[in-house]
Amino acid sequence: MKIEELKQKMDESHYIYDDTLATVLFVALQLGRPLLIEGAAGVGKTEIAKVMATALDRDLVRLQCYEGLDESKALYEWNYQKQLLSIQVNMGSRDSEELTRSLFSDEYLLERPLLQSIRSEKPVVLLIDEIDKADEEFEAFLLELLSEMQVTIPEVGTIRAKSVPFVVLTSNRARPLSEALRRRCAYLYIQYPDMEKELAILKAKLPHVDDQLCAQVALTVQKLRSNEAILKKPSIAETLDWAAALDALGVRELTPDALRQTAGFILKNSEDMEILAETQSKDCGCGGHCGGHHHG
């Protein structure tokens, strides 16, 4: 696949991207390397995996990481109930050795996301979401899969990938990831979008929302993000929620009152709310788009 083709497919998926992102995705695809994406919460890391699944016309297999995640939840588990039933049913009728062998066959293997992704006949997109939430042991366990595209199950042996999945790992940098894991991945750091990109995202995701309102929302969010006093910067998802909420409320123009009433969609703690109120007393944050009701 050429980079132009990838861009075309992403365009068809209505995904807003820049040249950097397209190049990084192309490099990861071309090298068959997992892609590690880091960035603040809500900048669209998970979305990239979803879009790649659509663009490449592949299934998305998602593994959500959390503290305590282990192989039985991520890779495989034996279906004990079925094994016991089989023992009871075949107790007298089959050779015991053959019975034991049959108990550890594919029939009794419960595939979890990682195994499912490498045993799939058709290549998939494997999303390992929030890897920083998983334990270090799990991170080490992933190394074999990420570098060799194979996993080892003691009772079965080594299972090689039938098809190579496109692996996307995301991290919010809650804890530093190991060097070994990083070395096996292509790396992408995503920052908050600029005004132009944010507006394009708003228009693409919420085509029914008024253009003027979109511009006001994007400008306000950009201002809030550039306000160094705001601790929790609004994410893209929050921007979209906010614009949708304003639209649902019938707001056509972002007035200071509308901003105050709906600020909970973009600011999620009281300190930031207070800062917004202070800022509003000087300037409503809409950059003058609100028609100047409050500008005396």
Partner: peptide, 25 residues
């Protein structure tokens, strides 16, 4: 491998591609 496939025409593109390969944080 990536340079062979991308070429060297676009400096920014080369920089991004190599950054993806070499830089891990």
């Amino acid at each position: 491998q990536i340079l062979i496939s991308l070429g060297m025409d676009d400096r920014e593109q080369v920089k991004t591609a190599l950054r993806t390969v070499y830089a891990k944080s």
